[in-house]
Write a protein that binds this DNA or RNA. Structure first.
Lengths: 143, 143
DNA sequence: ATAAATGCAAAAAATTTGCATGTGG
DNA sequence: CCACATGCAAATTTTTTGCATTTAT
């Protein structure tokens, strides 16, 4: 049997019943290096196992989101996109021309964000940092 | 005649044809201190002038967004929410319990964000900083 | 066994669009 | 005047749901 994905481990830790479908979605998410939308997740899931419906994908991402396992993003383009939350602290830089999403570490800013929240009387639960930029001439697109 | 709203001025600057409906939406947006969704914008617009349809509100926010006059946000809860872009540099703190959105200045971080983008080979076009927090016990909700 | 998950298709929401009509420049 | 904006309702798109059936524990 294939080894458990990180996402699946988190699901189990949260006491979720692990069905075949959820395992497939978990694996697809764990393997994604991009930020797929539901339609794309569904496509990838079906490729692994046709015995899954889009309704289940919707139900699953919603569930994982509520459990804090998944993060939902809106990078423009109309549809919600997802990525595992345990991806470590990070922020996004979106290329406004191509829509490509880069990630970068923001460990140094996390404390600062927490401090801001504290100042306003809040305990920081999570954060989102998104920079929208235009690739500078002469620069190679970072891979 | 009522004085022109800031948003309307921007529309004119962009060469947009100013119709009664657009003027109303512009004014509603200019007066909003919150981050209304389309439904809410429509409600407020209709209150000012019933001769407006929701389709026009959709068309208008899309147009203003494309022109960079409006910003679209996804604070969770499923629907897109809007605010004027010329609102100055700012970031949001969302109360995860109530969904309330606070704004705070982030001038001190803007330079840092720009530096990060530069490091990655990008010219910073805009950014988005969203903190999600839980109100700490004993703290009064900031106004 | 049994409470919960799934598929399917229908329903509900959210947004866009075609077209006849109205209107700003 | 006339290109473009609007209203309206229909069409799309996105997401949720009801219910009979299957499945994990």
């Amino acid at each position: 049997m294939e080894s458990q994905s990180q996402i699946e481990r988190l699901c189990v830790a949260k006491g979720l019943k692990m069905t075949g479908q959820r395992r497939v979605v978990a694996r697809v998410l764990a393997e994604a290096t991009d930020h797929p939308d539901v339609e794309e997740l569904y496509r990838r899931a079906v490729a692994r196992d046709p015995r899954i419906s889009i309704a289940t994908v919707y139900r699953t991402v919603r569930l994982l989101q509520e459990r804090g396992i998944l993060e939902r993003h809106d990078f423009g383009g109309g549809r919600a996109r997802f990525e595992p939350a345990e991806h470590g602290p990070h922020a996004h830089l979106i290329d406004v021309e191509s829509g490509a999403v880069l990630e970068f570490e923001d460990a140094e800013y996390e404390a600062a964000m927490r401090a801001i929240a504290e100042r306003l009387g809040f305990e920081l639960v999570s954060h989102r940092i998104e920079l929208f930029g235009r690739r500078k001439a002469g620069k190679v697109p970072p891979r």
